[in-house]
């Protein structure tokens, strides 16, 4: 009988108030054990302070063929990037 532990995706917040980043996956019977396993597997070298886990099959992902429609429109909105604007030096930090 197949009784494999489900796969979980692990997200870890590094030491410096960063957002959680995907670091890898692991197997665990439930969420609590997945967090503990995440601690044991992915923070062996002081990599993190906070762990999120989510069962892999609960991740909704964009499909690769949507890449164009999803991301290309933002490429034309260059004004969203601060470097678009020319601010004179004498104005100071902004």
């Amino acid at each position: 009988m197949k009784n494999e532990w489900p796969l979980w995706e692990v997200f870890i917040r590094g030491q410096h108030g960063m957002s959680h980043r995907h670091v890898g996956s692991l197997h665990a019977p439930d969420a609590e054990m997945a967090i503990k396993n995440g601690r044991d597997v992915y923070t062996r070298r002081n990599e993190g302070l906070s762990i999120w886990v989510v069962e892999s099959n609960h991740i909704a992902a964009s499909s690769p063929s949507d890449k164009g429609p999803l991301y290309e429109p933002s490429e034309s909105k260059v004004y969203r990037h601060p470097t678009f604007f020319d601010i004179p030096d004498e104005v100071g930090a902004m």
Binding site: W5, L26, H27, A28, M33, N37, D40, V41, R44
Partner: peptide, 11 residues
């Protein structure tokens, strides 16, 4: 019994 436990026991 499983890789995750192997790693945890070593810790």
């Amino acid at each position: 019994p499983v890789l995750e436990e192997d790693i945890a026991l070593a810790n």
